[in-house]
């Protein structure tokens, strides 16, 4: 798979704060790339740099195998649809008039505008003033404005922000559909849950650093869920010097490997501590994410 976006040591420093710290992103062609991170982790800043809206302090960006420079920017942007931080839109104009503005600025055909509006299901509301749109409709108009140019790459910053579950599902379906047509989609969120089911590849940011990049399966492999040892006599186990937290069923052990598990079980058995069950806690991706961003990462 060839890459649509690659960055090398991409860094942005504001006065004395490093918002984005030496990112090496790799976004393959035709995937939905979920760009995750808590508030203030640098997602928007990274996306702005990818669009040439703000200049990196250091590091480089390659888009479609071409380095992003002030000279190549104009050309590259023709095939990139984007929405950063919040959907654009002129409140005193109708949805269609907003689309016409995009049309005239990019010399698009009428059919491209109609198609974009239909894709986000706004055709019926196109003659309403945007200031009277609901949040979800504004969000969808923003996506339509990004889609109108029939981009090869779509960069969407929190497109599901403020949407209800049905709205989130709708955007999710749309993005998966676009990716299946070969469009590369980079979508950010601070909620893993929101992009979990659509992202093929995840990039996780924390404090400006990329702490994980890979598939969902790879992410699970990186994490060690807690171990639960069910025993009626946790006191005896703790007396052996095992580091664990007493819980209702018995003991809970964090961050221990398979080998360490075997060793603990052997010691408990030798000491005659009754063991009813040994199991790993079932972990959601959200737990992994929280764990990862809390610990400051793996990479």
């Amino acid at each position: 798979m060839s890459a649509v976006i690659t960055t090398h040591g991409l860094t942005k420093t504001f006065r004395n704060q490093t918002a984005v710290d030496s990112l090496d992103l790799y976004v393959p062609q035709g995937v939905v790339y979920g760009f995750l991170g808590p508030n203030g982790s640098g997602k928007s800043t990274t996306m702005k740099m990818l669009l040439g809206l703000t200049r990196p302090t250091s590091g480089g960006i390659t888009l479609f195998d071409r380095p992003l420079t002030p000279a190549s920017r104009t050309d590259l942007l023709r095939s990139i649809g984007s929405m950063i931080e919040a959907p654009p839109g002129y409140g005193h104009l109708t949805g269609l008039e907003n689309m016409r503005i995009v049309q005239h600025m990019l010399d698009l055909a009428d059919t491209q505008i109609d198609h974009a509006l239909a894709t986000v299901r706004l055709t019926a509301h196109r003659d309403k003033l945007v200031r009277n749109y609901s949040l979800g409709m504004k969000q969808r108009l923003g996506v339509a404005m990004a889609l109108a140019r029939e981009p090869a790459l779509l960069v969407l910053d929190e497109p599901t922000n403020g949407l209800d579950p049905a709205g989130i599902e709708e955007i999710r379906t749309l993005l998966v559909e676009l990716a299946s047509e070969g469009i590369t989609v980079m979508v950010s969120s601070h909620l893993l849950d929101e992009i979990d089911r659509m992202a093929d590849v995840l990039g996780i940011l924390s404090g400006g650093k990329l702490i994980f990049q890979g598939t969902r399966g790879e992410l699970f492999e990186h994490s060690t869920p807690d171990l639960i040892i069910e025993t009626p006599d946790p006191g005896a186990a703790l007396a052996l010097g095992i580091t664990a937290t007493p819980v209702l069923e018995g003991l809970r052990l964090s961050g221990i490997t398979k080998e360490q598990t075997a060793e603990v079980v052997r010691r408990l058995a030798v000491a005659g501590v009754p063991i009813h069950e040994v199991r790993r806690v079932r972990q959601s991706l959200e737990d992994v994410f929280m764990d990862l961003t809390g610990r400051g990462g793996l990479l």
């Binding site: 669009l51 809206l53 984007s82 929405m83 931080e85 654009p88 839109g89 005193h92």
Partner: peptide, 18 residues
């Protein structure tokens, strides 16, 4: 004023116009 509202400025700057 309309351009400085929200993210319309981003829209203008990503239109690939001179």
């Amino acid at each position: 004023r309309a351009e400085h509202r929200g993210t319309n400025w981003n829209l203008l700057l990503t239109t690939s116009r001179r």
